[in-house]
């Protein structure tokens, strides 16, 4: 399938996969926050190393993760190029009257490093359990019921919507429609999108009926009973130690 399936490798066996999802999500998210708050470049690089190590331990294929994070990466890479131009400070080099500041370069590198480290962690957090298990775990961590259901249904019906969209485009193409930017072609696209919208509205009504007819009264029943063991807590303590350690180092370096 495609990048939509963040849980495509949730069946692998690794210490991350075996971790109780609730504890895993909570402690790795904490580590993510700790990394995102770092100010020193050296400590941020250490944080990136931790993220990479956790990704390695999770055994998620590197090419698969790269495929998923390439857009966020493209967004993060320009920081070290842009910030030197906009941050005031000692210029280390002047080009066509534009000063490149060292502080700017360092800040840009810190932002990029923190960002990459956080993005890399997304996969061990959300890609090492089946999506629905993750969502149920998040519910038991306090995610509101309504949001839980929105996530679950969005995930289930994204595929269907994509198929309906593909079939609409095929039907347009088979009748000789070529996408353009002129008013006529925008009108056609608008009509097709409108049709898709109405179809999904009507579908949501039918799904709701199907749920009500099966006794739905607002809460999704779930059989996911999580079991926490000593090992889960030990892993959580290690990650917690890393998160606190990074903050401590950062504090010592920056002061």
């Amino acid at each position: 399938m495609s990048h939509l399936e963040i849980d495509g490798y949730s069946h692998l066996a690794s210490p991350i996969h075996r971790w109780d999802p609730r504890v895993k999500i909570a402690s790795l998210l904490l580590l993510t926050f700790s990394i995102v708050l770092l100010k020193s470049l050296a400590v941020a690089l250490l944080g990136l190393a931790f993220s990479a190590a956790i990704l390695l331990i999770s055994r998620l294929p590197f090419s698969y993760v790269l495929q998923g994070i390439k857009w966020p990466l493209l967004f993060l890479l320009p920081f070290p190029l842009i910030l030197p131009l906009t941050v005031d400070g000692e210029s280390f080099f002047i080009l066509y009257g534009l000063g490149f500041s060292i502080e700017g370069l360092e800040q840009g590198l810190v932002m990029m490093t923190r960002g990459v480290a956080a993005v890399v962690l997304i996969y061990p957090i959300f890609g090492s359990s089946p999506f629905n298990t993750t969502v149920h775990a998040m519910r038991s961590l306090g995610l509101p019921e309504a949001l839980t259901q929105i996530f679950l249904f969005a995930y289930r019906y994204l595929f269907l919507l994509r198929e309906e969209f593909a079939s609409a485009s095929r039907s347009l193409a088979s009748r000789g429609f070529i996408k353009g930017t002129d008013a006529a072609s925008i009108r056609v696209l608008g009509a097709a999108l409108g049709m898709l919208f109405i179809r999904s509205y009507e579908r949501s009504e039918r799904i709701y009926r199907a749920m009500v007819s099966k006794g739905y009264g607002g809460d999704l029943p779930s059989a996911d009973r999580f079991r926490m063991e000593g090992r889960d807590l030990l892993k959580a303590l290690i990650v917690l130690g890393l998160a606190l350690g990074l903050q401590g180092l950062d504090w010592m370096v920056i002061g």
Partner: peptide, 9 residues
């Protein structure tokens, strides 16, 4: 049937 199979498994 797509209206009635709304759960992840």
């Amino acid at each position: 049937p797509d209206d009635q199979l709304f759960m992840p498994s």
